[in-house]
Amino acid sequence: MPKAGGGISATIGGMRMEMRGSRVIGAAPERVWAALIDPEVLRASIPGCDSMEGDVENGFEARVSQRIGPVGASFNGRVELEDVRPGRAYRLVCHGKGANSGSARGGADVTLTATEAGGTRLDYDVTAHVEGRLARLGGRLLDTFAKKMAERFFENFQRVVEGGGMSDGTAEEKRGWLRRVFQGEA
């Protein structure tokens, strides 16, 4: 399970979010790295990702659709990789804009470390700044949503890398998430 921490703070013109955590994946670092730079694996792992194209050298273009509370948001975004240390680490720099929901920009430092058991520990440190209609939803809703999306991404990513396929987001999984939110566990 991921260990996530962080929080949200209001800034002039938007909301700033921070989140950090780690996850142990049952695959060698080389396999995890290959998956982290594969647009098809990323598309399959990102909840609501309609398309993902590109490569490490030129960056990735993506379209993601999500519902965040009462706001339906479709974002067109760009992801570029910086400080790439093949097989070990990189920094993601992202920016996206929604037609009627606002914009988001941020980054993530991702580091891979081999475990003694032959797996990979993936550490991440994320910062994001959200503006517009999404920022007006409030910190608690955005924080809960961001944590849920990170958890779903890493669950999907881990399934793909470990060879278990993708979750289809069944009704039972969705009810489980809603139950945790209303019971204060999310």
Results as ranks from 00 to 15, higher is better:
Leu142Thr: 08
Gly139Tyr: 00
Cys94Ser: 14
Ser65Asp: 15
Ala135Arg: 02
Ser101Ala: 12
His95Thr: 07
Gly119Met: 03
Asp50Thr: 08
Phe145Arg: 02
Asp125Ser: 11
Asp109Ile: 01
Leu122Ala: 09
Pro70Tyr: 12
Glu57Pro: 10
Asn100Leu: 09
Ala104Glu: 00
Val84His: 03
Phe75Ser: 09
Gly69Tyr: 12
Leu141Ser: 03
Arg121Glu: 14
Gly98His: 04
Arg136Tyr: 04
Val93Arg: 13
Gly102Arg: 02
Glu57Leu: 13
Lys97Tyr: 02
Leu134Thr: 04
Ser51Gly: 03
Gly118Val: 05
Gly59Ser: 06
Cys94Phe: 09
Ala128Glu: 05
Asp55Cys: 09
Gly54Val: 03
Ser74Ala: 15
Val93Ala: 14
Ser51His: 10
Gly54Glu: 03
Arg121Met: 11
Val130Gly: 05
Val110Ser: 02
Val56Lys: 06
Arg91Asn: 02
Asn58Pro: 09
Pro70Gly: 05
Ala99Gly: 07
Glu61Cys: 04
Ala117Asp: 14
Asp123Tyr: 00
Asp125Arg: 13
Gly106Asn: 01
Tyr124Lys: 04
Asp50Lys: 13
Ser74Arg: 15
Arg140Ile: 08
Arg91Thr: 13
Lys97Asp: 10
Ala89Leu: 04
Ala104Lys: 00
Asp50Pro: 00
Thr115Val: 11
Glu80Arg: 08
Leu142Met: 08
Asp109Trp: 07
Ala104Ser: 08
Ala104Tyr: 01
Leu112Pro: 12
Gly132Ser: 01
Gly102Phe: 01
Tyr90Lys: 06
Phe60Ser: 06
Cys94Met: 15
Cys94Tyr: 12
Glu82His: 15
Ser101Tyr: 06
Pro70His: 12
Gly106Gln: 00
Glu61Val: 01
Cys94Ala: 15
Val126Gln: 01
Ala135Met: 04
Ile68Val: 15
Leu134Met: 04
Leu92Pro: 06
Met52Gly: 02
Arg63Val: 09
Gly96Met: 05
Val126Ala: 02
Val64Trp: 02
Val130Tyr: 01
Val93Gln: 15
Thr127Trp: 14
Gly138Cys: 10
Gly118Glu: 07
Asn76Ser: 13
Glu57Thr: 14
Leu112Tyr: 12
Thr111Trp: 07
Ala62Lys: 02
Val126Thr: 10
Ser74His: 13
Arg78Pro: 00
Glu116Leu: 14
Arg78Ser: 13
Val64Ala: 06
Glu57Lys: 15
Thr127His: 12
Leu142Glu: 02
Ser51Arg: 15
Tyr90Leu: 15
Asp125Cys: 07
Leu137Trp: 05
Gly132Lys: 01
Arg78Ile: 12
Arg136Gln: 11
Ser103Arg: 09
Leu92Ser: 13
Cys49Gln: 06
Val93Trp: 05
Asp83Cys: 00
Asp55Thr: 01
Ala104His: 00
Gly119Tyr: 04
Asp83Gln: 14
Gly107Ile: 06
Glu131Ser: 11
Ser101Asp: 06
Glu80Asn: 07
His95Asp: 08
Asp55Arg: 10
Leu112Gly: 11
Ala104Asn: 01
Cys49Ala: 12
His95Cys: 10
Gly138Leu: 07
Leu112Cys: 12
His129Glu: 15
Met52Phe: 08
Ala62Tyr: 08
Glu131Thr: 10
Val79Arg: 05
Arg136Asn: 11
Asp143His: 08
Arg88Phe: 11
Phe60Cys: 05
Asp50Gln: 14
Glu61Gln: 10
Leu141Asn: 06
